[in-house]
Design a protein around this nucleic acid. Sequence first.
RNA 1: GGUGGGGUGGCCGAGUGGCUAAUGGCAGCAGACUGUAAAUCUGCCGGGUUAACGCCCUACGAAGGUUCGAAUCCUUCCCCCACCA
Length: 430
Amino acid sequence: MKTTDVLEELRWRGLVYQHTDGVASALAAGPVSAYIGFDPTASSLHVGHLVQSMVLAHLQRHGHRPVALVGGGTGMIGDPSGKSAERQLLTAEQVAGNAAAVRGQLERFLDFSGPAGARMRDNATWLSHTPLIDFLRDVGKHFTVNYMLQKDSVRSRMDAGISFTEFSYMLLQAYDFLELHRRDGVTLQLGGSDQWGNITAGIELIRRVAGAEAHGLTVPLITTSSGTKFGKTEAGAVWLDPERTSPYAFYQFWLSTEDADVGRYLRYFTLLSREEIESLEAATVSAPERRAAQQTLARDVTQRVHGESALRAAEQVSAFFFGRADPTELSDEAFAVLRSEAPFVEADFGSVSAETPDRSFDVLRLLTESRVAASMGDAKRLLAQGGVSINKRRIQPADRSVPVADFLLRGAYVVVGKGKKDYTLLQIRF
RNA sequence: GGUGGGGUGGCCGAGUGGCUAAUGGCAGCAGACUGUAAAUCUGCCGGGUUAACGCCCUACGAAGGUUCGAAUCCUUCCCCCACCA
């Protein structure tokens, strides 16, 4: 693929929000090195970061060199961009641990071999060893406070207050850009739309210090058409770390994408061609109930993030929970997948058995012990509302207890369900 | 340092001595309709206990106090904001 086409590709995918004037000609002139920074504020990236990784991947596919920067240094400070309040500082250990985890996740999206081989950098490398006086003279001198106060990230905080620490963040990021320009010849910085101010500060610094022309491009904020925050579920953020968000839950997140959003998401989060995406969009219009676009999206993203075998397991678990499969007829192999991939909790028989009649499950206890319900009151409400199922059989509000014999799978398991989507496999210890 | 305003449930935001587990909105959960979609409609939405009515506990920044009774009054402390210095 030609280096020139990347901007056009990013445009039709809707991944361009704002850019400096010279970007097009710079990309056309040949391979450029471009970077995006990821601050290690948590021990895992989440789906919101996925867009940025995809932009790097697109650049690489078109022959440019992507540089992923982990903010081991800036993560110590906290970026005020897009934040309405001062942030809690993380400890040095937390930042270092998070940075290592984030680095590992980023590595999966990029190809580090070949002429356009990706590079991974950590700004702690230079930021932790820059003497304060040098920084103030070499970087600080190039910015007026007046200029800094104009930036959205600062201006929007003038009422709520902003510490000097966070106020300084843009200088650190500007310095990163300069440093990467020197080390790796980086001339383009990408980022979320809230990064525009920080990016332009870096461009400014490179122009003044290195006398070179650098560029910036920002990616739009991902929204859902129904106005909720993208990347959030009932359980919170959707993480890339399988320990935090299971591949099954991850797959389900994408699969339940609304029709109105699925076309955009295919553009943002997959590498599928324009023709493929347009045909899936057409399929969503003509046969929405088939959910072909959602399935393709879920498969593609889960596969890239978690790998082929995790995807297969997620699909099997989904097929069981959402299909017509009878839990008593599961094959050994299918059950093994369910056992290892589905939400899973153990409980002692004593804690879920009913007083009377003998050898019965207390339905409310099954709900609380499996953590499907948060409290007894919650469990009671669910049951009264008809939202409870065991082994996919709906339980009537009057049935406070059910015979063990009728509901035990493989001598030790029960599938506890709430509503149509929320299931947990409970193992009973007798 | 001074003056003024404020801290209420996941969030926003009413409430200014009993009718307040605390109006309302958002978010969330369940049901109906569907396509594991959206929208819409209905119900729920602190915890324990009860078949249920109910009872008990915890909660309105923190700790004390006044009162038969406090989110509401008083005292001290902590925190936030605005203006002034």
